[in-house]
Design a protein around this nucleic acid. Structure first.
Lengths: 204, 204
DNA sequence: ACCATTGTATTACGATCATCATATAACGAT
DNA sequence: ATCGTTATATGATGATCGTAATACAATGGT
């Protein structure tokens, strides 16, 4: 071998990282192999030594993003009492910061309407991500003693993802904020979390 | 003049109609001028006699679609008592049929995540559509005597749009259906519509 | 010091696409 | 029947992009 032990591995990671951001910011169709490679500090030619196609890159990036998100959330919630964890997650997801930074946010809100038009494998990875998050919400609800978690969780997540997605399309600040803040409040009401002191950071 | 009085007007409408479907089915980026013209029974060259750019077409198609949707909904709900109208609209929107036919459905669910990446004018048209629908829901809520319509309506719509959007990305039939049916039920519970006989077609 | 190996860069190809200039054809008035 | 007008078709251009073949360069073992 002639290159440093982990050159290729490092480069691979850099490409993946660049792709993960560009995927969420510009979507699967506008992401270009060339600009991903450029963002990774390389030229486009070497790409196919790392991924066998653009689609393979998209799938790897999506998968990687879900895995990182999952770990971040676990860390965010660890040690919190159940109801607090649930409220914290809702505030974390349905947030102005999340709205303003799609490139580091949840792929589900960022790629909602793109996904049905993507490859089967891409959709499968996306679906796995949805299941994972719905599963998380379900578990948090169960631990918090909320009734009927398995029937409520999908609808709760639809509300969360829908609100963040829509808030991104609205330039009218007041209305965009309204989508987020009323949604936070509403979800907590639905889950019976409003009377607790946990939601104290919530302005409504 | 040498062509029939309304040749051009008719053609214009045909292009718009083709674009409206292709926009919702394939998204703004994958919609191609060529295939829209072909769907309208024409060749691509004549396009610029009708629209000054692809973006202008997208905006016109989006605007047109919202207007048609609005009229269709007015017709659907006219004559219904308030609570019934509200429940009917929810069932109409959060529906398997809607999920399965993006090309004739609501552009908001179809273009959720594409919109932040489009032109300012496109986003403005999209935003007008959101405001119109949220306004409709607000009005229906007010007429139905539901509390706090102006704060609830955005969150209700986020739930509706989110559920349909997500249901389209899920190939797991059971889970996809679950998103829709639990969302219908949940919204009605939130709005106090469940005890009425109105929601009788609702399986849950 | 050098060479075999392998990661990366150069360059090219073919496809798709938006846009536009120009040619053709349809039709109503004469 | 013919002609002027205008809607549509043909064809070209330049850009972007995914993919791939090939050339170059970096490094560790000898």
């Amino acid at each position: 071998m002639r290159y440093a032990e982990n050159h290729k591995v490092e480069t691979h990671k850099a490409i993946l990282k660049a792709a993960a951001a560009e995927l969420r910011e510009h979507g699967p169709d506008r992401l270009s192999v060339g600009s991903v490679m450029q963002a990774a500090g390389l030229t486009h030619g070497g790409f196919y030594a790392h991924f066998k196609s653009k689609d393979a890159l998209l799938i790897a990036a999506l998968h990687d993003t879900f895995e990182r998100s999952r770990r971040r959330v676990v860390k965010l919630l660890e040690g919190l009492p159940p109801k607090n964890a649930l409220a914290t997650y809702i505030d974390f997801y349905v947030a102005e910061t999340h709205r303003d930074h799609p490139e580091t946010g949840c792929p589900i809100t960022a790629l909602n309407s793109d996904t049905p038009r993507q490859s089967k494998k891409f959709k499968a990875a996306f679906e796995a991500g949805i299941k994972s998050i719905v599963g998380l919400i379900e578990r948090l609800m169960r631990e918090a003693g909320v009734a009927d978690p398995e029937h409520l969780a999908p609808s709760i997540f639809a509300t969360m993802a829908g609100a963040v997605s829509l808030s991104r399309t609205i330039s009218d600040q007041a209305l965009s904020d309204e989508f987020l803040s009323t949604t936070r409040t509403n979800i907590k009401v639905r889950l019976g979390l409003t009377d607790t002191a946990l939601a104290s950071e919530e302005p409504n």
